[in-house]
Design a protein around this nucleic acid. Sequence first.
DNA 1: ATACTTGCAAAAAGTTTGCAGGTCG
DNA 2: CGACCTGCAAACTTTTTGCAAGTAT
Lengths: 141, 141
Amino acid sequence: MSSSRQESLIDRCKQHGLRITGQRRVILEVLDASDDHPDVEELHRRVSAIEPGVNIATVYRTMNKLAEQGLIERHQFDDGRLRYEPAPEEHHDHFINVETGEVIEFRSDEIEDLQEEIARKYGFEIVSHKLELYVRRRKGH
Amino acid sequence: MSSSRQESLIDRCKQHGLRITGQRRVILEVLDASDDHPDVEELHRRVSAIEPGVNIATVYRTMNKLAEQGLIERHQFDDGRLRYEPAPEEHHDHFINVETGEVIEFRSDEIEDLQEEIARKYGFEIVSHKLELYVRRRKGH
DNA sequence: ATACTTGCAAAAAGTTTGCAGGTCG
DNA sequence: CGACCTGCAAACTTTTTGCAAGTAT
């Protein structure tokens, strides 16, 4: 399981007034158990392994509802498909290993601060941001 | 016109061995005159204003060819559509004004350096990166 | 009870491709 | 002339939607 979060997605959904159906229960369980950034097709695959018969449209609709409530985060890396992760406590950015497709999370307060500073300099305030570093493992470490 | 580049896209295409057809001439002219980050539909609209009858598939194919040669840069912001800009001399990042959709370019050496440093710390080298700041104008400037 | 969810199939939106004809170099 | 490019229509991929039936609260 991934989340360092204490509270399950199911509980958070209830708090947000979303109904917990059989399908949603499975989807949320899959999300809670995910350490990566699956796309809808992959989510559907994982859900189907537990409980066949859940339509992919249901997965799409559920993910949209969750994103609407801020319970998950939506990403779109360079492959063009939508990917999701349970909303983290604290913002982080991503390495994408271009050789393996692997996604690794990281956080840098210096970068966060620098972004704020630059935005301020231009007369903006940041609503959200996205930093993706497409990387390769260094040779001879 | 946007580009601080001295050389026209047409010349650079020739150097790369791409044939200059009537359609391409117009598309390249439009790109050279663009200061923004148009999507394919918008490009097609601008091209059609100069020379009606150019098919949108041709625009798609041309953009793919240009991107292949590194003559333009492809972006995908949160609206999901592919956007393009003539390849800049020097890398830059983007503000996206969430209220107007406007895209503004900026560059920060501090951020570039910090990214390198972080990647190195994790044992990666950066192949490319993408930083998008979704922003709003500050009230009371 | 009733507002919210689901499955299914159809539609949308964005992009790519096969093919026959046309053009650049 | 030959390789490359174009228009057109059809195909593809990913995501959304209408509707009738089912379910959580």
